[in-house]
Design a protein around this nucleic acid. Structure first.
Length: 563
RNA sequence: GCGCCUAUAGCUCAAUCGGAUAGAGCAACGCCCUUCUAAGGCGUAGGUUGCAGGUUCGAUUCCUGCUGGGCGCGCCA
């Protein structure tokens, strides 16, 4: 509908230009907004405000001219029943009843309602979580999982071909530390012993890994199968087993969270396939490196960094961002013109380095590539006190804890319902309480109520057809109009959330829609005697239920038929 | 010291690439279950949008400078 009005306004602008009321070079970005206040109609436009100065007229006078010309168009007036000039010069559009209710049949008939083709089938890769296999996933990973998966769903809904990818370091110093820690536990040592590895992982899960290793267990993860040989002196075997064990554990957590990946990418494979060496050679050949103090440096300051960065340490090993550059070159070469990295804001300093490295490769990668979505830190509260997140201390709140205590739906909703750029306080006590403090229940309850209405309509033999559009004129209460307006907004909300990479906009929308539904439910009885009214309400109820379910699905939250 | 994020009602958060009177939930108070699920609804109260400037018809939004909070600033990842 916005597009419809926008097209007509474009025509008006063209007319005004040819009538010399507007300068030829005037290029307005015509903005059609949803109104906050119903008194302002359904949609509002600021064209007269934008064009007033170029036209040399008062905004309200110009608005008057625009409205007159629109009123001359009968096609337009069929869809827009009334126009008003308001405030400094807004033009408010009141949609006709037929226009307002048309969304009901759209929703009921179009299984793809809300979807669009903005992405035009282009490939996009979303890398998220990417936790190292040194322990169970913590709540920060949970936020990454929730946001990353919702972004994936949003982009799928807007016509992109999405690859979900998980990258992990299976070979670095932290993995050595992991292996040493497991070995120490296998030998019966604890953190209190003198020979306990320096900075060893102290969490209880290390004991589990050690016991499983000693028991000769077999674990399967990421298409690899590892059987423990129970030899506490075989550090290499311990390393392989520990990585597989923890990867399996992480995958079970992610599965319980409703998140699945298409690709698991191992840092070690970058070395095995020579991609790191190839990238380094290219950087050297391109002249962006120099040797100093026995190390090899990349001149990242050429690309906006505040100082140059070491690529190859004096011990011959590469610093972490070098394989990162090789990895992203590989992403590019796999044909991903659009890549989104969802990661914790504590790693934001890598962005400049990776982008600098990619530019220095000189392979025509665009300057701002790839995109990043950074989520801020999550603070966990329990019993009114902050629970510290520390991977090495082993006393952090795991994603598994949350899923077990709070439930998958509520956890996903809480972690995705806030802007990623905002810090998040996760109050476990609040989230796990079975009271109505929990906003996800509010939305799910709206869905369950509508499902219940549908059941009872069926029991009473109140059948209806999706084609009964003539009944829709009966939808004239304030509450029904509010629901209709919100339903019509759904496609643009999905598009906007996808464009701005902000899943929380969906959560916000769903809350609004649920609120409108609950108000309606309380104000109007659905299963009334009047067949016309009843059918209209059942149709709107079915459409609302469908959109609630679609929205919840974008968040990865279930839409229960009863609660 | 430098970089990124952030500051909105008592609390947790929204606010459409700058729009009209800044909105929800929780907490507080008052109502509504003989009616399709009260995990609900209706109403009241609650604000100098951290501070000071600037840009403009219009600023929570953009710019500058302060102040407070978080994260980062390693030949760790």
């Amino acid at each position: 509908m916005k597009a419809f009005i926008s097209e007509h306004l474009d025509l008006i602008v063209a007319q005004l230009k040819s009538d010399q009321l507007l300068p030829e070079d005037f290029q307005p970005r015509i903005q059609i907004d949803n109104t906050k206040d119903k008194a302002h109609g359904d949609l509002a436009c600021n064209l007269a405000l934008m064009a007033a100065k170029p036209a040399g007229k008062k905004p309200r006078d110009l608005a008057e001219i625009i409205v007159q010309r629109l009123q001359a168009n009968t096609d337009f007036c069929q869809k827009v029943s009334k126009m008003e000039i308001a405030g400094p010069g807004f033009i408010n559009f009141f949609l006709s009843q037929a226009t307002l209710t048309s969304v009901v049949s759209q929703v009921l008939e179009d299984e793809a309602f809300g979807q669009s083709n903005v992405g035009q089938g282009e490939k996009v890769q979303i890398e998220f979580v990417s936790a190292n296999p040194t322990g169970p996933l913590h709540i920060g990973h949970g936020r990454g999982a929730a946001v990353g998966d919702c972004l994936s769903r949003l982009l799928e809904a807007t016509g992109w071909q999405v690859t979900r990818e998980f990258y992990y370091n299976d070979a670095g110093a932290q993995i050595d530390n992991l292996a040493l820690s497991v070995q120490a536990r296998a030998k019966g040592l604890g953190p209190e012993d003198a020979s306990w590895p320096k900075d060893g992982y102290q969490g209880d899960y290390i004991v589990d890994v050690a016991n499983s290793f000693l028991a000769g267990d077999t674990v399967i993860a990421d298409d690899q199968q590892v059987t423990a040989n129970a030899d506490v002196n075989d550090l290499d075997a311990i390393r392989r087993f520990a990585v597989a064990f923890l990867r399996r554990e992480q995958d079970l957590d992610l599965k319980a969270f409703g998140v699945a990946f298409d690709v698991y990418y191992l840092e070690s494979s970058l070395y095995q396939e020579g991609l790191v060496e190839a990238a380094v050679k290219k950087l050297i050949d391109n002249g962006f490196t120099y040797e100093e103090g026995g190390a090899l440096w990349l001149r990242t300051t050429d690309f906006g960094d505040d100082k140059d960065r070491v690529m190859r340490k004096t011990d011959g090993g590469y610093t972490y961002f070098v394989p990162d550059v090789a990895y992203h070159l590989n992403k590019w070469q796999r044909g991903f013109k659009k890549v989104i990295n969802e990661q914790g804001a504590d790693h934001h300093s890598t962005i400049t380095r990776v982008r600098a490295g990619l530019q220095a490769l000189k392979v025509d990668i665009p300057e701002g590539w790839p995109d990043y979505v950074l989520h801020q830190m999550v603070t966990v509260m329990r019993d009114g006190e902050e629970v510290k997140i520390s991977k090495r201390a082993g006393s952090y709140v795991t994603l598994r804890d949350l899923i077990d205590e709070v439930g998958c739906d509520a956890t996903r909703y809480f972690l995705a319902a806030r802007a990623p750029s905002s810090q998040l306080t996760f109050d476990i006590d609040l989230a796990r309480s079975q009271t109505n403090d929990n906003p996800v229940y509010y939305i799910q309850y709206a869905h369950a109520r509508l499902a219940s209405v549908a059941r009872q309509a069926e029991e009473k033999g109140y059948s209806w057809s999706e084609k009964a559009t003539e009944c829709l004129a009966q939808l004239n209460t304030d509450q029904e109009q509010a629901v209709l307006n919100l339903l019509a907004r759904f496609p643009e909300v999905v598009k906007k959330a996808a464009r701005e990479l902000e899943p929380h906009q969906i959560a916000q929308y769903l809350r609004d829609l649920a609120a409108a539904m609950h108000s309606w439910y309380n104000a109007n009885q659905f299963l009334v005697e009047d067949a016309q009214v009843r059918t209209a309400r059942l149709m709107l109820a079915a459409a609302t239920r469908k959109v609630l379910a679609k929205g919840l699905d974008l968040l990865g939250v279930t839409a229960p038929d009863s609660m």
